[in-house]
Design a protein around this nucleic acid. Structure first.
Lengths: 202, 202
DNA sequence: TGTACATCAGTGAACGCGCGTTCACTGATGTAC
DNA sequence: TGTACATCAGTGAACGCGCGTTCACTGATGTAC
């Protein structure tokens, strides 16, 4: 009886639908889902979702938001796993980003609005800011500077771009073995060293 | 009479449809187009396209391919505008990439397969390789090394990722003014300097 | 130059499909007495 | 503890819609003689 207003008939249809849509997105692409198909996979009539969501867009919004939260948690965990000075901390943070992109490429694409359905929502923007804040904090701690320092901002952004760019190219297969010879680990270290030289304080 | 087998009835419907689809994609997103709508905007019946294309996918393929060619030309022109040693050459190359992403965000997204309809096609892969080849060449010339040198490959890839990542984040509005304080120009110079130090030959 | 014919780009009507959404309903659960 | 009632999650049938694709056709253009 801890969970209130759940387990009425279905259990928790709202969460189940979000999960069904997530799976459809991962198996058929960012736009390869429909309410109808999600209902089929949840074993429910096509009218049922409207008890929980206003419309299609509201479902998608929820799916993306849950993805952003998962990603944020992964990044936070990666940052927490190393002390402030350790250069491996940056690498681990980048890895957590890339790993998420690789394990949930559909949601990842939606988060960055590249699919057909672009959603503007304060909640999503806010969640995205939170993720950048993690990068800023880690970089500031690494450089021993304030989070407001322009140099911190510039380097954090450069790191973000480098990791984000690699994530897209890697999961897209653009960075396939015949052209790119650098390993992911070497790449991350190269990027980390290039933007955050261990001894430099300028 | 220079153009053969054209100007029968419509002029050149094939090219016109590709252009209509392109415009729809830019105004309504990567998946915000239909054959029907493209026909309407071309002033033609919905059956007409099938005289030129096998199906919907073949139209999209053509649209993406033409976008890749435009982008390749822009990159080539940027590289050609500066001599081999000039550090501004790298910056200009990056700018041409970003400019394309900004002026044709819909096609850009499709090129990197983030929309619902993912197309696998040898022609597209080949065209993509050609673009990376430009980056490899410019970096090799900049470093005074062979195009096969692993260090060249790694730095070219790092540059690509940095620029690609920025393109996505910038046109997506993620890199808005309240969080990111570094200017695009400063960013490009930072990236160029970080991966390709002017004097370093190691 | 003029005529008969072949070609083939574009027509317009029709098709079946899956979709998002609405509707009056049903029936299980929670609550008041 | 038992009963009556209110709530509301889920039903299932229906809707109108725009879509991709097919079809027999039409009629303008190019070509052979």
């Amino acid at each position: 009886m801890i969970e209130k207003k759940k387990k009425y008939h279905h259990g928790d249809l709202k969460e189940q639908l979000v999960e069904s849509v997530r799976q459809l997105i991962e198996s058929h692409g960012p736009d390869g889902w429909s309410i109808a198909e999600a209902c089929r996979s949840a074993g429910v009539s096509t009218a049922a979702p409207y008890k929980h969501f206003k419309d299609r867009e509201e479902i998608l919004h929820e799916v993306i938001l849950s993805g952003m939260r998962r990603m944020g948690e992964a990044m936070q965990a990666a940052a927490d796993a190393y002390p402030a000075g350790d250069p491996e901390r940056i690498v681990a943070l980048g890895k957590s980003y890339i790993d998420f992109a690789r394990s949930e490429p559909g949601i990842f694409a939606l988060m960055f609005g590249m699919a057909g359905s672009r959603i503007e929502a304060p909640k999503l923007t806010e969640e995205g800011r939170g993720k950048f804040a993690i990068v800023i904090r880690v970089v500031a701690e690494h450089m021993g500077r304030s989070q407001d320092d322009p140099a911190v901002n510039a380097r954090a952004y450069a790191l973000w771009c480098a990791v984000h760019g690699h994530s897209f190219l890697a999961l897209d297969g653009k960075a396939d073995k015949t052209e790119i010879t650098v390993s992911e680990d070497d790449y991350l270290h190269l990027v980390g060293a290039a933007f955050l030289p261990p001894t430099k304080t300028d």
